[in-house]
Design a protein around this nucleic acid. Sequence first.
DNA 1: TTGTATGCGTTATCAG
DNA 2: CTGATAACGCATACAA
Lengths: 344, 344
Amino acid sequence: MHKKETTIYDIAAALNVSAATVSRALKDHPAISKKTRDKIREKANEMGYQTNALASSLRTSKSHTLGVIVPRLNSNFMSTVLAGMEKAASDAGYHLIIMQSFESEIKEKENAQILFNHRVDGLMVSTTDTSPEPTHFKPFFAKNIPVVFFDRIPEKYSQHNCVTIDNKEAGYQATRHLLNNGKTRILHITGNTGIQVYKQRLEGYKEALSEANRSFDPQMVWQTNLSVEDGKVCAKRIMTMKPFPDAIFVANDTCAITIMHYLQKNGIKIPEQIEITGFNNDPFSEFSKPSLTTIDYPGEETGIKTVNLMIEKLNTKHVEPKGKQIVLKFGLRIRESTNRKPVK
Amino acid sequence: MHKKETTIYDIAAALNVSAATVSRALKDHPAISKKTRDKIREKANEMGYQTNALASSLRTSKSHTLGVIVPRLNSNFMSTVLAGMEKAASDAGYHLIIMQSFESEIKEKENAQILFNHRVDGLMVSTTDTSPEPTHFKPFFAKNIPVVFFDRIPEKYSQHNCVTIDNKEAGYQATRHLLNNGKTRILHITGNTGIQVYKQRLEGYKEALSEANRSFDPQMVWQTNLSVEDGKVCAKRIMTMKPFPDAIFVANDTCAITIMHYLQKNGIKIPEQIEITGFNNDPFSEFSKPSLTTIDYPGEETGIKTVNLMIEKLNTKHVEPKGKQIVLKFGLRIRESTNRKPVK
DNA sequence: TTGTATGCGTTATCAG
DNA sequence: CTGATAACGCATACAA
């Protein structure tokens, strides 16, 4: 096996001091004379000492680790959020255990459990769960371990600590933009509306229609997984629609651009025949032809704000004020070529 | 403060058995009778017992945690790699601490140190370091903690455990494709060539030129960070070039598509006037107009294979065979409209 | 300014 | 099949 690791006891022995002194010296405890401190540091280096964070965490019940659960980490939006989180966490002396739930409530539960067992100092989650009040965060609440929700927030925890945007308003604006351009038959392609964000975007869509005195047609709302694959399928289906829609509000850019691409392949003129609006402001939404109008959902800011809220909670654990809701500003990025006449 | 947590001692006391028995029962030790095992499990649930993985790790020196260091996690390629890693790791009972080095050697060093201190069972790294033989992995080697390099591999560790593609061959093929289409003035826009992957792609570029009896012009190789910003700058600069290049081999898709977009904005016909080749096969490379020819670098596979190699090492630690190099297959995705005559 | 003693929660060894 | 006990490596209350 590998040789035993060097501990504070080893360096204490080598220097004829106590382990306590070594422990203190190594963490710059003020009560240690500069002389012994330097001596200890030097010896520690010499012996290749590496502190054991596990032991330290066990002793202090502070792991300096934050748990993150997301549906999947490889979307442009989510990886941008995570990048922001990692940066902010690292700056604050924390690091991240990141886990994916793959849209499975069971997996999310397991992940929460594992993170709890590893004694994370806090949990940040974009939930995949469609149940209004998931139970698997209970142990965290019970032990007063801060939980911050971001992006996808369970219905019942919307008054809890969370960071998000006003999805209803965003859905409203995206739809309104299409209505303003004279579009009347607006298809809405979205995700699982059991998930709040999609439900709210749908509400915004409805509100815009209602405001414009357009009737809402449930047939014009398609639930998908918003993947590239789904985009292809949707495009195919759109081509068979009796009266063509003249616009589509898609709940993410990936799917929106895929649909645009395949409709164009079928000879459809975008935006003249069908105008498309996306969601997220992925970098490539700007580079598609035509550029895609979309909702700018600030991913990095979401990540940073989530971590900052977490840190704040960690530093004021005993007070425990009511949950804090951070609603970020989003932007409507209008980008199709506008030199076309509104059909009115 | 928060109340003490329930330990195996609490449940032992409640059941008049020893803590050892509880510990064994909870991990299905064969030497425990089914009866007491069930009794203990039930009590554990009842008391809301949650195992403390920290204590367990300290005792067993197995953290079931793998460290990951990447330059940044929010590129399509990298987040796809990480998604594959997380999946594979999770399936094998491990989880991931992911850290970003932001192209800083110092940060990479700090990250390695932190991960070491947290006693990760293994380290996976896409290095940012341009020094041929970075020293900060020494502690891992010394303690026989497996280190697997992926994507970006330090020069001196290329015989170590690593997972990558043949970047030289890929650079060769990308360039060759342009030459085959009759292009002669091929610009190469790449990253820091102190990093092996870019150095090797450049070598492939040179080899293709040499094979076609084209002379190599150092002026035609631009080092950038391959970002969207860099793409804009490059496009601007290209517009001022005396004889226009007739092709560009860009070392990633993000930058390639940005350049394409801005050249088109300036009225350049792609690919007639300038043909562009990217690298990575980001999803949107297919949806640009025209679709981008690119190198399909299998991200998810990279992640999975890296973790699998890691697990293999973890399970055969004592044998310690020589390093294992896994070279993944890449593909050249030819995608521009091909119905144009080669200029020959 | 430094040392002593103890505990964090678990698992492994050795007995019985 | 079960129990007692000693680590794992560190940090802290209490003494000195």
